[in-house]
Each structure stands twice: as structure tokens, then as C-alpha cells.
Design a protein around this nucleic acid. Structure first.
Lengths: 177, 177
DNA sequence: CGATGGCTTGAGATGTTTCAACCCACGTGG
DNA sequence: CCACGTGGGTTGAAACATCTCAAGCCATCG
């Protein structure tokens, strides 16, 4: 991805589907298609975006000739696996407030490393998409935003979010259960 | 892995940890260490097991010379990513009965492809480990086993499990929500 | 035989979902 | 330019699933 914002979704056989991640500028997507020659999930742009297509065969051939490229490619795939471990941890053992806190911290961290403010952000996705990613219903996401706002940790105006107390978010995430 | 049975766990900063997968003979583990030169999770043998260590540098060098190996390696990593998508789907949108059904079907499928019975299996992990993997407490796992037994779908005696109605399990998994 | 770790079961507490109503911002067409 | 429709968001109350805590059971092992 060159610019923009995407979500990726896996679809279950029964029609329901779930958001597996959100991607922003500089990140790669499509690793799910290598194993079977057919992608297991859809990528959907949540705003106007630019991407750069890299044919996998080309990448494989090039990485065969150029070791640093191969190494880098492997690292990126490995990090994707580790990222998913983090999501599993979130889905398997956190409650709503913690999930949202972890999600927001992750977003701000990534935005910050791209030169954006780490306290002010505009969400590109709906409450429902967040909920799908976090394993929550959209109403729960909405209520949790409200709660964090009441606690003075966030300031939420629709999709405009300001982080007032990052340390508190971090504490929430770390508070075992 | 040559023989045996493993679990892999990620540990959160706060001490709690979660099982991210169970591995059996013929499967590979350790992809989480490539990105950072340090493994993000522990692998623990749940019974006497034999493994074959493959130094990653060697693998990378060999796969540079031998394309089919490279391709295979990429496929395996990609499938690991897709597998984790499946777990995320399970953790994010299924309820206890469905999670256990999906888990058992996955186990029997893998055992069957190794020449074991697809209806009779011996669990290598505790209720707690299953619960950790499935995002449930051990009591819930136990109760769910009981429920599936009452419904005539399973026959459970401690860790001995017999699948009486595989189709019903499949139906459970597919029943949206 | 007693101790231990794992498993089961019950009852009540808790957190999330469900269903429903309503609000708000935005864009469109009369 | 305003009314209206729409999609997204908020909020409440009751239903529901899972968790928690507690007790007791079972198999295994020294």
C-alpha cells in the first residue's frame, strides 16, 4: 500500500464474515493467497487509496537472486504471524474496554510512526467494522467509547478521537483481565 | 516435528498467557521468531516428542538455490497466517459449543490425515489448555463437553473422546452464530 | 493410603448481546 | 434552500452466555 486505509475480511462458509485487520500506508497485504493460489480474504479500501501490485512470482524470483530481499520478505511474513497472535490474545482474553484500548493504542502507535499526532486520530472504519475486528457488537463498541470518555481517557466526537490519557489506556491493557 | 504433540503459547506482559495452537507430527513451528530474531512464543511438548531442528539460515540459503523448497516454505507460512484467521473467526464470533465443535473437527481431520481414526481420539491437553486456546474458561469447556454428550454428539470419558455424529458437529460450526 | 492434579457440577455474579427506539450528520432532489 | 431519506451512531432494558467461586469427584502416583 502506498497511501490510504484498508480492511481485510475473512468470510465464513455461512455468509458471516469478520475483519482480520486494518492496514495503512507502507504495509503489505495478500500473504493469505500464497498457500493456496487463492486469497482467503478480501481487502477493502476504507478511503481513496493507492497500491502497488507486486506479482508474487516476480518477488520470489527476485528474492532468490537478492538475499536481503528474501530475508526482509520472511521477516514481514513472520511479523504478520506475530501480529495475529496479538489479536488472538485480545479476542481470547480481554474484555471490551481492554480490547478497545489495545486497538486504539495500536492505531495511534502506527499513525505516530508515520508522522501523525499520537493523540488525535480520525477513525476510518465504522463502529461495526471495529466490532467485527474486536469480537464485539457495534453497540458494545459505542458504549465502550462512551465509558472511556466518561472516565476522562478519551474525547470522542463521532469518528474524531482524542486520547487524553494514554497512560491510562496502557494501564487498562496491562491490567490482567 | 517428527512425532508427538505440542502447544504454543504467547505470553502477555502481565504474566497471563494464551495457547495459540496445537501441533502434531509433520507440522512446523517457530515461524514467529523470524521477524525479530527472538521467538514471540513458547512451544511446549504435551507428550514425549521428537523434533528435527532446522537452522533458519540454512533453510534460507538452501531455498535460495532450490526454488521448489522456497515455494514450499512460503506456502507453509502463508497457510499458518490463514490458519490464524480461522482462529480469529472462532474467537471473535462463535459461542462455546461452536468453538469446541470446530476445534474437535479440526483435530480429527488432522489425525485422520495421519492415518488415525476420525471418530476416536485421545486429547493430549487439559481442559484449561483447550480453554485458553478457545477463549473459554476450563469450566465452560467441561460443561460444553457435557452438553455435546447429552445431545448424543460425543461420548466423553476424561480425555477419551468419541465422535458419534460428525455431521452434527459440522452443522453446529456452520450454524451462523 | 493420602496427596495431587485434573475434571465436573452448581448457584449466583458479571459482561455482552439483543432488540428497540431515537438521534445526528450528510447529501439529494424537489 | 429546505425537507427528506439514509447510514451510522447512541442509549436503554431485558435476555443470555460465560465467568467466578466453591464444593466435590476421580484417577494416578509415591
Amino acid at each position: 500500500m502506498r497511501t490510504g486505509f484498508f480492511k481485510t475480511c475473512v468470510g465464513a462458509e455461512d455468509g458471516s464474515d469478520q475483519v482480520t485487520g486494518f492496514q495503512m500506508a507502507g504495509e503489505l497485504l495478500g500473504f493469505d493467497g500464497i498457500g493456496t493460489e487463492r486469497h482467503a480474504c478480501d481487502a477493502v479500501a476504507l478511503e481513496d487509496s493507492q497500491v502497488c501490485v507486486i506479482p508474487f512470482d516476480t518477488l520470489e524470483t527476485l528474492s532468490q537472486e537478492f538475499q536481503p530481499l528474501q530475508r526482509q520478505f520472511h521477516k514481514i511474513m513472520s511479523r504478520e504471524i506475530v501480529r495475529e497472535h496479538g489479536v488472538m490474545l485480545l479476542l481470547g482474553s480481554m474484555r471490551a474496554e481492554q480490547r478497545l484500548a489495545a486497538f486504539l493504542l495500536n492505531l495511534t502507535k502506527r499513525l505516530h510512526s508515520r508522522g501523525f499526532s499520537s493523540t488525535e486520530l480520525v477513525l476510518r472504519m465504522t463502529r461495526e467494522e471495529m466490532g467485527s475486528y474486536l469480537g464485539l457488537k457495534l453497540e458494545t463498541v459505542s458504549r465502550t467509547f462512551g465509558k472511556l470518555q466518561e472516565e476522562g481517557i478519551l474525547e470522542v466526537k463521532q469518528r474524531q478521537v482524542r486520547v487524553l490519557d494514554e497512560a491510562a489506556l496502557q494501564r487498562l491493557v496491562n491490567s490482567g483481565c
